Computed example of a mutant assay.
Amino acid sequence: MPEISSKGRQMPASPIRKLTPFADQAKRDGKKVYHLNIGQPDIETPQGMLDAIKNIDFKVWAYTPSEGTLAYRTKLTEYYNKLGYDINPAQILVTVGGSEAITIAMQACVNEGDEIIIPEPFYANYNGFACMSNVVVKPILSVIENGFALPLISEFEKLISPKTKAIIICNPNNPTGYLYSKQELEALRELCLKYNLFLFSDEAYREFCYDGKEFISPMHLEGLDQHVIVLDTVSKRYSACGARLGCLITKNKDVIAAGLKFAQARLSPGMVEQIAATAAVDTPDSYFEEVNKEYTIRRNTLVERLNKIEGVFCPNPGGAFYVVAKFPIDNADKFCQWMLEEFEYENSTVMMAPATGFYSTTGAGTNEVRLAYVLNKEDLEAAMTCLEEALKVYPGRV
């Protein structure tokens, strides 16, 4: 029998989705499963997006330009320039989801075998994108004790070598919810200028900042125009994960030109998605204000309940809709699977993502779990009661 490729063997499985078969079996067994494992919001998609799809009247479902339609890119500049990015449509490359924006950025900017530094824990699929792009991830550890703040710049410098080409940040962060401060971003700015590095800024959760905290992008910093590549998506902002539409933004003309060649190879992003997303830019601020209030309630509910459980520690995140919590357990992978396979409380259980999958360093995060607060307050309360009861009887409790 022919063998699969070495890359096929090396490609990591998603830690977010790998427990799905166990959850499916739990449901077949009649259990209610509270899904805190994946960032799929239950917030309704803006009506303007849905209406735009309903009102489509084209006669041919045609290819769009590889870089995205001019109408959509022009509309996007309205959104980003309200944020102070000062860009034009030529500096936007529309992608098939934020995931493709990341892979195109890696392939356009980093040579095979070169290195990208990423603070960990980080979005698990960065490992997969790096594998696809033949890029080496150099993790730099952030820790739960200080809420996963940016590691010291001196620690970054220890990792920098002639092969280092870029740093990736996700702000606000997935999986930790940490919101980077202006001071932290200024420090990264100096580092990128000193060593001539790209700074990839994954801003999928830009809208989700709490307690009046301000979102700062590297696009707001002086002197970084040729270094910054913003990676974005409509998935979280508009609760439109299934639209699979994102973009890459940079003022670096060489990166845009190189990225466009990769985009041409996959032909084009979807027409219907761009029509819907063009309408989405006009979503009123009131929509985001209500969403922010709802997520603040959910965050407070989850963090307060977690920290009341004996042996659990959970920092209070400044953004996104995730937390990483430390549990009194021997192994997060075993615990999360045990919850689905062997535990139930009042005929229910909780699905979570082991934090081990968000680290690149072997052995890191073994007693940590990521939880997404994408359920309503009532369901979160029930899920936390279930989790508290589970931790009382888990055989691997430490």
Results as ranks from 00 to 15, higher is better:
287 Y>P: 02
205 Y>S: 11
262 F>Y: 15
287 Y>L: 05
278 T>S: 10
247 C>P: 03
222 E>S: 15
259 G>S: 01
251 K>V: 05
249 I>L: 11
230 V>G: 09
217 S>Q: 06
201 S>K: 01
253 K>T: 13
266 R>W: 07
268 S>F: 07
207 E>L: 11
208 F>E: 04
222 E>D: 15
251 K>I: 08
240 A>W: 05
210 Y>T: 09
245 L>S: 07
257 A>T: 14
194 K>E: 13
271 M>G: 00
250 T>E: 05
265 A>M: 12
278 T>K: 10
223 G>P: 06
262 F>W: 13
284 P>V: 06
228 V>K: 07
216 I>W: 14
199 L>H: 09
285 D>G: 09
267 L>N: 09
273 E>F: 05
259 G>I: 03
241 C>L: 12
203 E>H: 00
283 T>R: 05
251 K>R: 14
228 V>F: 03
252 N>E: 03
234 V>P: 04
273 E>R: 08
239 S>H: 10
210 Y>H: 11
260 L>S: 07
281 V>P: 01
253 K>I: 07
227 H>A: 14
248 L>W: 06
236 K>D: 15
212 G>T: 08
221 L>H: 01
285 D>L: 11
255 V>Y: 00
242 G>F: 07
205 Y>R: 04
217 S>M: 03
208 F>Q: 10
262 F>D: 02
221 L>P: 00
208 F>V: 00
230 V>S: 15
242 G>S: 13
208 F>K: 10
230 V>F: 09
253 K>R: 12
231 L>M: 11
236 K>H: 15
223 G>V: 07
259 G>F: 01
257 A>R: 13
205 Y>W: 12
261 K>P: 10
205 Y>V: 09
216 I>N: 13
222 E>Y: 14
286 S>F: 12
256 I>R: 02
272 V>N: 09
237 R>Y: 08
286 S>Y: 12
252 N>G: 07
215 F>V: 09
241 C>I: 10
213 K>A: 12
238 Y>N: 04
278 T>G: 06
225 D>K: 11
244 R>E: 11
264 Q>F: 04
211 D>H: 12
254 D>T: 14
229 I>A: 03
251 K>G: 05
268 S>H: 12
254 D>L: 13
260 L>P: 01
273 E>G: 09
236 K>C: 15
195 Y>W: 13
209 C>S: 10
228 V>I: 13
263 A>H: 00
212 G>N: 08
259 G>V: 01
258 A>P: 01
286 S>T: 15
217 S>L: 01
251 K>D: 05
217 S>V: 03
242 G>T: 11
208 F>W: 04
247 C>H: 14
252 N>C: 04
206 R>C: 07
229 I>T: 02
253 K>F: 03
273 E>S: 14
258 A>H: 11
270 G>N: 09
191 L>A: 00
256 I>E: 02
267 L>A: 13
240 A>N: 06
238 Y>F: 15
240 A>Q: 03
216 I>C: 11
206 R>G: 01
220 H>M: 12
263 A>Q: 01
229 I>L: 11
249 I>M: 10
263 A>K: 01
202 D>F: 04
